[in-house]
Amino acid sequence: MTETFRIPIIKLKDNLIVSIQGSLGDRLVIQLKEDITSAIERGGVRGLVIDLSGIDVMDSFISRAIRDIGLVARLMGVRAVISGMEPMVAMTLVEMGMGLESVKAALNLEAALDMLARDAPRPLEGFGGKGRG
């Protein structure tokens, strides 16, 4: 990983989407946390999807980093969902005795966005025009 490399953060409507590929290092994780928190701070964010389909090996460092990002996001009022974890990676994490605790999981990116939309705190009736009916 070079000094200039950053994990891109995509904003789609009111969600942030991060796709993690390959390996994460200390610096990259700190950078990602900063980038996500500042993106949330800029406003208009309700959900965060961390897509893990590009990760074939996930050690405790990466899982902890993802969990931390999820926790930080939640403290800032944003729900985090992981998506697309490889089956063997899930099996390994469980065998190690690790989980992602508060971070919910979805089968894929689409399901993750679906989940965020569904569970999002409903806007008050009569405001914003997105209410029922």
Binding site: I82, S83, M85, P87, A90, M91, L93, V94, E95, G99, L100, K104, A105, A106, L107, N108, A111, A112
Partner: peptide, 12 residues
């Protein structure tokens, strides 16, 4: 419990 946890990590 492990099977269930792993399945849930996948989003099921």
């Amino acid at each position: 419990i492990k099977v269930i946890k792993a399945a849930e990590l996948l989003g099921t």
